[in-house]
Amino acid sequence: MASPAPPRIFSRRRRIAGLRRASVRQAQRDAARYLMDDMVEDILDRLEFIRMSPARVLVIGDWTGTLALSLRGAGSDVTELDMATLDEEQPIDAAPYDLVVSLSSVDRVNDLPGALLHMRNALAEDGMMIASFLGAGSLPNLRRAMLAAEPDRPAARMHPLVDNQAASALLQRALFKRQVVDGRSLNVSFASLDRLVSDLRDQGLGSALANAPAPLGKAAKKRADAAFLAGANDKGRVLENFEILTLTGWKD
């Protein structure tokens, strides 16, 4: 009996459009890229700590190109793919790889267990997968602002996020061995809600929900701005939290 299709929460078309918009925005001098920079630095630190020098690597989602550049400098043969050229819910070609890295990508697929399983199947024996993305606990001030904008009937405007417990279960379901799930916080201050939204768009993290609600009206936007700034410190800035979740698993 065939398994039921996963619910359609995300739109692949909207994800690709957001990535292309981010690529254009990155040409601006002040474009934000701190989340991807943090993830890349963390991956390189992990590989150095375990003294792993993979021969063949697949990097998914790093639109900065920094991770691939560093790995090639260390002698790895690296293939780079993004969500426009790789459907994470389909088998991965040109396997096997000694290392598969996914950055800010698989958290916005409809079939996350399937995407993790495809990455596992793309690994060579004893190969390793690392996936980093924004996890539960991220953007509490933005969530509060969105709820305040439409107090009577708030629309679904933000993505559901994965927590540590769910991530561990997902790795087990995808048949990974020696699973490790850990999280870390990255705090960034903002003077306005508009700047936070701009930073998210710079980094390809705008909404990719399949059923996108209409934009906020003027009154709702005013309520959102006020709710966001209600959490400001004495310098008029709001400290927003990004919780970065990292999943690590080995094939055997």
Rank of each mutant, 00 (worst) to 15 (best):
Q26V: 10
Q26C: 04
Q26P: 07
A27P: 03
R29T: 07
R29Q: 04
A31G: 01
A32H: 13
R33C: 14
Y34A: 14
L35T: 01
L35N: 05
M36G: 12
D37A: 08
D38W: 12
V40N: 11
V40F: 11
E41Q: 03
D42M: 10
I43E: 00
I43K: 15
L44W: 04
L44Q: 07
D45Y: 07
D45S: 10
R46D: 08
L47W: 05
I50Q: 10
I50T: 03
R51A: 05
S53V: 07
P54I: 02
P54R: 00
A55V: 06
R56L: 01
R56Q: 03
R56E: 00
V57F: 01
L58H: 13
I60A: 02
I60M: 06
G61V: 02
G61I: 07
G61W: 01
D62Y: 11
D62F: 11
D62G: 10
D62L: 08
W63Q: 09
W63V: 08
W63A: 14
T64L: 11
T66Q: 09
L67V: 03
L67Q: 10
S70N: 07
S70G: 01
L71Y: 11
L71C: 08
R72I: 03
R72L: 08
R72W: 05
G73Y: 14
A74V: 01
S76N: 04
S76H: 01
S76L: 02
D77G: 03
D77Y: 07
V78K: 06
T79N: 15
T79F: 10
E80G: 11
E80F: 00
L81Y: 12
D82S: 06
M83T: 04
A84H: 12
T85E: 07
L86A: 04
L86N: 02
L86M: 06
D87A: 07
D87G: 13
E89P: 00
E89H: 01
E89M: 00
E89R: 00
Q90H: 04
P91G: 12
P91I: 02
I92C: 04
A94T: 04
A94H: 12
A94G: 15
A94V: 13
P96V: 06
Y97S: 02
D98V: 05
L99V: 12
V100H: 04
V101F: 09
V101H: 09
S102T: 13
S102W: 10
L103T: 13
L103V: 13
L103P: 09
L103M: 15
S104G: 14
S104Q: 12
S104E: 12
S105H: 11
